[in-house]
Simulated assay, not measured.
Amino acid sequence: MVQREIYEHFHPDEKSFVDRASEWVERAADRHETKRTDFLDPRQAHILFTLANRNPDVQVRLDGGSEQAERKKAIVAPDYKTLEDEDMGIVVLDISSDDRRISELDHGDYLGALLGLGIKRDKIGDLHVSEEGCHALIAQEIGDFLIGHMKQAHRIDVIVSIRPLTALREVISKLEEQVISVASMRLDGVASDVFRLSRTKIVAPIKAGRCRVSWKPVEDPSHPLKAGDVVSMKGFGRFKVLDVEGVSKSGRIRVRIGKFV
C-alpha cells in the first residue's frame, strides 16, 4: 500500500490508480515482474513516472502508437530489462463506410460508438478522425470483438478492420485560436469566456467533478490557470491556455486560447 504522504500529492479521485501504479512498481522491483498497462492519459503517466522515479530498480517505457500520441500504454519493468523491442499490444482499428455522411462524424461520435459496445476507455488510445473515417488506436486484445460487433457509428453503417501501426493515418489535432480578456486567471472566469456561458453555468459542472486541468480533477472554480494548461469539461469540450500575453491599462489580462476542434 502506498504511504500516506504520497497521497498528499494527488487528488482523492486518483487514489485507486496510485495504488495500482504503486503495485506495478513494487512488483517490478521486488519480484522482477514486467507489467504492460492499458492506455493511460498524461496525468496517469505522470503519476506512474513519479512513483517509478522513487525506485532506482524500476524503469518505465511509454508508447501510444504514434509520435504525438496523448494516450499511451506503459511497460513497467526491472531496470536491467531491455524494453525497446517489447510489443506494446497496440493496433489500428480502421473504421470506414460507403455512406458519404461519415465525413460529418467527429471524435465524440466514434468514441461514443466504441464505449456503447461496453469497451472500457482505457482500452482505447487516440482517435484520428478524417473525412474518410477514423483510425482508432486500440488494445490488440479487443480487435476481434470489435470486428464482430461494431456495425454503426452515430447511426451510420460502418466497416471495421484491424491494421498494423504502420498503416496509421495520423491526424494532428487542430486548435482554433482566440484571444480573450479576463479579470483574472480563475478557471471559471476563463472557461466561461471560452465556452461563452455565464459564470453560474460554468461553476456547477466544475463543482460536480466534470472538469480536469491538465488531466487532473479540479473542483475549485477559483483554481488559477497558467500557460500550457489543458482544460477539459464533460459536455462542453476542451481548450489549451497557449499564452498569457499581458495586462491592459484597465487591469484585464489578455489570454491566447486554443480550442480543440
Score class of each variant (00 low, 15 high):
Leu146Gly: 06
Leu146Glu: 12
Ile147Gln: 07
Ile147Val: 13
Gly148Ile: 08
His149Arg: 06
His149Tyr: 04
His149Lys: 07
Met150Gly: 00
Lys151Tyr: 03
Lys151Thr: 11
Ala153Lys: 09
Ala153Ile: 10
Ala153Gly: 04
His154Ala: 15
Arg155Leu: 13
Ile156Glu: 03
Ile156Leu: 11
Asp157Phe: 11
Asp157Val: 14
Asp157Ile: 13
Val158Gln: 01
Val160Tyr: 01
Ser161Asp: 14
Ser161Val: 07
Ser161Tyr: 04
Ile162Gln: 07
Ile162Tyr: 05
Arg163His: 10
Pro164Tyr: 12
Leu165Cys: 11
Leu165Ile: 12
Thr166Arg: 12
Thr166Ile: 13
Ala167Ile: 06
Ala167Lys: 10
Leu168Lys: 06
Arg169Phe: 07
Arg169Glu: 08
Arg169Met: 05
Glu170Trp: 05
Val171Lys: 07
Val171Gly: 04
Lys174Arg: 14
Lys174Glu: 14
Lys174Gly: 08
Leu175Val: 09
Leu175Gly: 06
Leu175Asn: 06
Glu176Asp: 13
Glu177Asp: 06
Gln178Val: 01
Gln178Ala: 01
Ile180Pro: 00
Ile180Ala: 01
Ser181Pro: 02
Val182Lys: 00
Val182Gly: 01
Val182Ser: 02
Ser184Met: 02
Met185Phe: 06
Met185Leu: 14
Arg186Trp: 08
Gly189Arg: 08
Gly189Ile: 09
Val190Ala: 03
Ala191Glu: 03
Ala191Pro: 00
Ala191His: 02
Ser192Trp: 05
Ser192Val: 08
Ser192His: 04
Ser192Phe: 02
Asp193His: 13
Asp193Tyr: 09
Val194Met: 01
Phe195Leu: 10
Phe195Gln: 09
Phe195Met: 11
Arg196Cys: 08
Leu197Thr: 13
Ser198Tyr: 11
Ser198Pro: 14
Arg199Glu: 09
Arg199Gly: 10
Thr200Ala: 12
Thr200Gln: 13
Thr200Cys: 09
Lys201Gln: 12
Lys201Ser: 09
Lys201Cys: 05
Ile202Gly: 00
Ile202Thr: 03
Val203Ala: 01
Val203His: 00
Ala204Lys: 15
Pro205Trp: 05
Pro205Ala: 03
Pro205Arg: 08
Ile206Asp: 02
Ile206His: 02
Lys207Phe: 03
Ala208Trp: 10
Ala208Asp: 14
Gly209Ala: 08
Gly209Met: 09
Arg212Thr: 15
Arg212Glu: 11
Val213Tyr: 03
Val213Ser: 03
Ser214Trp: 02
Lys216Arg: 14
Pro217Phe: 06
Val218Leu: 09
Val218Trp: 08
Val218His: 05
Glu219Pro: 03
Glu219Phe: 00
Asp220Val: 11
Asp220Gly: 03
Asp220Phe: 07
Pro221Cys: 07
Ser222Gln: 14
His223Ser: 13
Pro224Lys: 10
Pro224Phe: 12
Leu225Ser: 04
Asp229His: 04
Asp229Asn: 08
Val230Lys: 08
Val231Pro: 00
Ser232Ala: 07
Ser232Ile: 02
Met233Ile: 15
Met233Ser: 05
Lys234Ala: 15
Lys234Val: 15
Gly235Trp: 01
Gly235Leu: 05
Phe236Val: 01
Gly237Thr: 04
Arg238Tyr: 02
Arg238Gly: 10
Arg238Ile: 07
Arg238Leu: 08
Lys240Asp: 05
Lys240Glu: 09
Val241Met: 07
Leu242Cys: 00
Leu242Ile: 04
